[in-house]
Nucleic acid binder design. Structure first.
Length: 151
DNA sequence: GCCAACGTTGGC
DNA sequence: GCCAACGTTGGC
């Protein structure tokens, strides 16, 4: 089993919406490295840290579980979608994929980025690396265990 | 709103 | 293939 961190802007899709819906299809990823993680490495049962970015208190809002492995992201072919991708339309097939998640539990309060920064055991998390903007990142088992024990 | 640190695009 | 210009991310 592997562990991941996935970023979302709560203005677009929040933990609260996720929990209420009971499921999420992670569409809209338009970065090759992030896509490749989903396509090649995500397995059913993998655990995900659900991260809120670009908001008043950036941080991990809860934990989720991968419930379906990578399949084509249809928003790439939908001209009315903000995630529409002309190159996918041209080739006739979506070059982007998504996975499905189900919520596990929420963190109350969120594990804020500021708090995470202060914890020596978490100092090597990719999240804290300058310039690291990947929206999907691998997390080590130790990091995951530390966070879910603390929060 | 600022801006550092990227990734992508496209002319050559 | 190079690389300048441009666009995006995301904390602050």
């Amino acid at each position: 089993m592997r562990y991941w961190l996935m970023k979302t802007e709560p203005d677009v899709f929040s933990w609260e919406q996720f929990a209420e819906k009971g499921k999420a299809s992670w569409d809209g990823v338009r970065n090759y490295q992030a896509r490749n993680f989903m396509r090649d490495d995500f397995k059913v049962g993998d655990k995900v840290l659900f991260y809120h970015s670009s908001c008043p208190v950036p941080g991990i809002a809860g934990i989720a579980t991968v419930s379906r492995e990578a399949y084509p992201d249809p928003t790439a072919l939908d001209v009315s979608s903000e995630y529409f991708d002309p190159a996918s339309q041209k080739s006739g097939a979506s070059r982007w994929v998504m996975v499905d998640l189900v919520p596990d539990r929420a963190f109350y309060p969120v594990a804020s980025l500021a708090e995470i920064r202060e914890i020596p055991e978490l100092s090597s998390m990719l999240l804290l690396k300058t310039g690291q903007r990947l929206s999907i990142q691998p997390v080590t088992e130790r990091e995951f265990q530390f966070i879910t024990t603390r929060w």
